[in-house]
Simulated scan of single mutants.
Amino acid sequence: MRNLTLAATALLLMTSTAFAERYVMITHTQGTDTFWPVVEKGGRDAAAAIGADFEYNFAPSGDMADMASLIEAATATQPDGIVVSLPDVGALGPAIQAAVASGVPVITINSGADFSRSVGAIMHIGQPERLAGEAAGRRAREEGAVNGLCLNHEAFNASLVERCEGYFEGRPLNMIDVSNDVAQIEARTAAALQSNTDIDSLLAVGPHVCEAAAAAIDSVGADIHLSCFDLTPGVINLIKDGKVAYAIDQQQRLQGYLPVIFLHLYTTGGGLLPGSDVPSGPGFVDQSNAAAVEALAGVDR
């Protein structure tokens, strides 16, 4: 009787494992950006909540062809769903379309909202990037900024370009590529400030860019209005110290957590799905509310 019970238990465990849902998330980080571990954590937390397996992948090279290959490799394993960022529709679109054609539902996150439906994704979760940039630009002008410069660390990323374009709404775009290397970001920002002393404001479109830009401002000794996107403990400290006017918070944990939950509902609930895309931001974090979110920066947002 004991052996029969053990056998039945083993069979139940094997069956449960064999039929566990499995979701794969692929994003465009090179592993240097502190933003993405929060997204990954959201995905893992969601998978744990529903008892699903979860895989997170990125291409350390940052190359879009390598990211497309990761999407193709994930598709070949036929997971229950794929979550993917979409910074370059030209490079990634065919791989996503192939996943959809093979029967794998896809949700895009973070970047590529305007192209999500065209590649066959069932929905997008992220921040309306141009609107977020416009909000950042309006506030900068209200706070006295006149001659701005946008620091973009991923020139290929259409969503980051949209942030910069929004910041300069109605004005000529002034944007430079600062690379994804922190030392280069600081050096290129300092050089830009030294070569054009009319610049009085900077928008950093990523948190590591923001921290490096603050260091560049200090090294040059300039009086610059600095605003940025996304939160880290370092960015929070810069806000508290008055070196960053505000940060745009897109609540990236939602970009990791919600797609796994929605894919679970979609695949197990007869196609249950929200009726529209989900905007995870934008919101402002400044000296008035930085203390309230400080403990969450770099962990859950």
Rank of each mutant, 00 (worst) to 15 (best):
T189I: 10
T189Q: 12
T189C: 11
A190H: 13
A191I: 08
A191H: 10
A191P: 04
A192S: 15
L193Y: 08
L193A: 09
L193N: 08
Q194R: 15
S195F: 00
N196R: 13
N196M: 10
N196I: 06
T197G: 10
T197N: 13
T197M: 11
D198S: 15
I199R: 06
I199Q: 06
I199H: 04
D200W: 04
S201H: 06
L202V: 03
L203Y: 15
L203W: 11
V205A: 13
V205Q: 14
V205W: 09
V205T: 14
P207L: 05
P207A: 14
P207E: 08
H208E: 15
H208G: 12
V209E: 10
V209M: 09
C210V: 12
C210L: 13
E211Q: 12
E211A: 09
A212K: 10
A213Q: 09
A213S: 14
A213Y: 07
A214F: 01
A215R: 15
A215F: 06
A216G: 06
I217Y: 03
I217A: 04
I217H: 04
I217T: 03
D218F: 03
S219H: 07
S219P: 07
V220A: 06
A222H: 07
A222R: 14
D223N: 14
I224E: 11
H225M: 09
L226P: 01
L226A: 06
S227Y: 00
S227V: 09
S227R: 03
C228W: 01
L231E: 07
L231Y: 07
P233L: 13
P233I: 14
V235Q: 01
I236N: 01
I236R: 01
I236E: 01
I236Y: 00
I239V: 14
I239P: 10
K240Q: 15
K240H: 06
K240P: 05
G242K: 10
G242Q: 07
K243G: 01
K243W: 01
K243D: 03
V244A: 02
V244W: 00
A245I: 02
A247P: 00
I248F: 03
I248W: 05
I248N: 08
D249T: 04
Q250Y: 03
Q250A: 05
Q251E: 14
Q251F: 06
Q251N: 15
Q252W: 00
L254Y: 09
Q255F: 01
Y257H: 13
Y257R: 11
Y257Q: 11
Y257L: 14
P259D: 08
P259K: 09
P259I: 05
V260R: 10
I261D: 11
F262N: 15
F262E: 14
F262C: 11
L265E: 13
L265N: 14
